[in-house]
């Protein structure tokens, strides 16, 4: 089957192609997810819209209000190496440095990863913990979608067929915020199924003895990258303790529906999610970490 190809130079060109394709186009940036699906013959694109060379989708900048803007076609490697990000959201640097391996980091993009909406994806949950905004561009212009409204269902986002994710806007964290990212994987590299991850931002209070405020994202525990206000509430204004984490664990078991796969049952994943979350919260809270990089072990 023949495939059309548009090497867009501007967002307008890309959107024009998306409109013309009437929902049949596939946007390609780094291609590391899409081309796997093509090689597996699970996707046979009839129109590829290549957005990797659109200037507006590149660059990492700090805006005047402190917001950090990341172009959707910025690679994981660029995120990992960005000084702006390391300073503003340390967990994002760590997270990006631990995605698959160098080959994938060099090609895969943050926007592509977020738009894939893989429940196991790592970048999406950092967005959830940091309350980022997804700025899209479509035939009717720009749209800003809060990340907590972005992930709709398994591999499904709020992005319309004729829209493109242009950039990600991450507001500055409240003073005193500490971040941490933790990931469970069967092996120490290259796992992208069956991973469980947690992204945490928290503020300590009462002489650093309590969690005053927390926001978090969880990967690998549902049909989408997950946030949970209920869990956040349970972890707000508390001294983290076995009892608190016991309640968190119960809640996780009650509401999370991880996808059972060839490696692990849903129950094992729930268990791992509880451990991952606890270890990651404690990494942020007290700096204790026995893991290696972002790997929790």
């Amino acid at each position: 089957m023949s495939c059309r190809y548009t090497a867009a130079r501007t967002t307008a060109e890309a959107v024009e192609a998306l409109v013309a394709a009437k929902g049949e186009a596939h946007v390609i940036a780094g291609g590391v997810a899409l081309v796997i699906l093509m090689n597996e013959k699970l996707v046979e694109p009839s129109w590829l819209v290549d957005v990797s060379r659109i200037d507006a989708l590149h660059g990492i900048d700090r805006l005047s209000d402190g917001t950090v803007r990341i172009g959707a076609a910025v690679t994981h490697r660029e995120v990992a190496e960005s000084e702006i990000i390391a300073e503003a959201f340390p967990m994002m640097s760590e997270m990006a440095a631990e995605i698959a391996c160098g080959r994938i980091m060099n090609k895969g993009t943050i926007g592509g990863n977020i738009c894939l909406a893989d429940p196991q994806g790592d970048p999406p949950i950092t967005m959830l913990a940091l309350d980022a905004t997804m700025r899209t561009v479509g035939p009717d212009g720009r749209r800003d979608i809060p990340v907590r409204e972005f992930f709709v269902d398994l591999y499904e986002t709020a992005l319309r067929d004729d829209e493109l994710l242009q950039e990600i806007l991450i507001p500055p964290m409240k003073p005193g915020s500490i971040t941490a990212f933790g990931k469970y994987a069967a092996r120490k590299a290259m796992d992208y199924t069956s991973t469980i991850s947690a992204a945490v931002r928290l503020i300590r209070g009462a002489g650093n003895g309590r969690i005053e405020e927390i926001s978090l994202g969880l990967g690998g525990v549902g049909q989408t990258p997950v946030y949970s206000e209920a869990l956040e509430e349970m972890l707000t204004n508390v001294r983290p303790s076995d009892e608190v984490f016991g309640r968190v664990r119960e809640r996780l078991f009650a509401v999370m529906e991880p996808i059972e796969d060839h490696l692990y049952s849903a129950n094992y994943k729930r268990h791992v999610a509880a451990v991952t979350l606890r270890r990651t919260v404690m990494k942020a809270f007290s700096g204790t970490w026995e893991g290696e990089g972002v790997l929790i072990r």
């Binding site: 069967a186 092996r187 120490k188 590299a189 290259m190 796992d191 992208y192 199924t193 069956s194 796969d261 060839h262 490696l263």
Partner: peptide, 16 residues
């Protein structure tokens, strides 16, 4: 066979 690929058939890498 449910995992006919290296994505779900896990081989040890250099870190393992």
């Amino acid at each position: 066979i449910m995992n006919p690929h290296y994505r779900d058939y896990l081989l040890p890498g250099a870190k393992d």
